[in-house]
């Protein structure tokens, strides 16, 4: 009976196993890289907004407190997006002719809200709550980055589960005194942060042992 396979089939079979392995590993690597790239996470991607609102000017330039506009951040899951009324508190008197602000004036006149594009949007299976983070001493900048430097607003952190857990497992690396939560220029040294953070975990009753439970964020 003749040989079914040519002797080169040995090489081919080894080669195809190798190619399959390399392809599998390569695909996994590519998958991993894409999942972490800004294409997927949208980190530092600036969405086009109806008005090029500069946080930099309002926060650093004028010194407005975050809560002047995001009024419900201390007591609600939602930080609060300011209604047109809030913009017009000042812009009914200042920059009243600026073409850039025309959509704001139109919104007030027509009573139609400005259609901002969300910069941070967690999946619907995550039940994030701003108020508890603020009350326990997580600074705005810890998640939102240097908003006071953003001439146009971008998402600073990937906000995937792995990222959430870095803090849920080790909150002492991020907690602040309550008076510093809204302080955008706060920057303690690493040692200061760790010793203060450990103290704050105790003082603010941060339940570290339960903070990685699924039901903390997922219902």
């Amino acid at each position: 009976m003749p040989q079914i396979f040519h002797p080169s089939a040995n090489t081919l079979s080894r080669l195809s196993i190798l190619v399959a392995l390399v392809a599998a590993a390569g695909s996994v690597t590519i998958f991993y890289l894409i999942m972490r790239s800004p294409y997927q996470t949208q980190v530092k991607v600036i969405p086009t907004q109806p008005i090029p609102f500069p946080h930099e000017h309002h926060v650093r330039g004028l010194g407005l407190d975050c809560r002047y506009c995001h009024t419900s951040v201390e007591e609600s899951s939602f930080a609060g997006l300011p209604p047109t009324h809030t913009c017009m508190t000042c812009h009914s008197q200042i920059w009243t002719k600026a073409p850039m602000l025309e959509p704001v004036r139109q919104s007030l006149a027509s009573k139609k809200p400005i259609h901002w594009q969300r910069v941070h949007n967690l999946p619907d299976f995550v039940y994030f709550n701003h108020s508890i983070h603020v009350q326990k001493g997580v600074g705005c900048a810890s998640c939102h980055g240097p908003v006071q430097k953003m001439s146009l607003t971008w998402k600073d952190q990937p906000m995937n589960m792995e990222w959430c857990l870095t803090c849920h497992q080790k909150p002492e690396a991020h907690l602040r005194e309550k008076r510093d939560v809204f302080n955008m220029e706060y920057s303690p040294s690493e040692e200061e942060q760790l010793s203060l953070g450990k103290d704050l975990v105790r003082r603010n009753n941060v339940p570290v042992d339960r903070m990685s439970n699924c039901s903390v964020c997922h219902r």
Binding site: A24, M35, N121
Partner: peptide, 18 residues
């Protein structure tokens, strides 16, 4: 809205990765 591509990139990658 922008910033919401939860699974599209994942789908592409998954297709690549088989």
């Amino acid at each position: 809205p922008m910033g919401r591509r939860p699974a599209r990139a994942g789908c592409w990658a998954a297709a690549l990765a088989l």
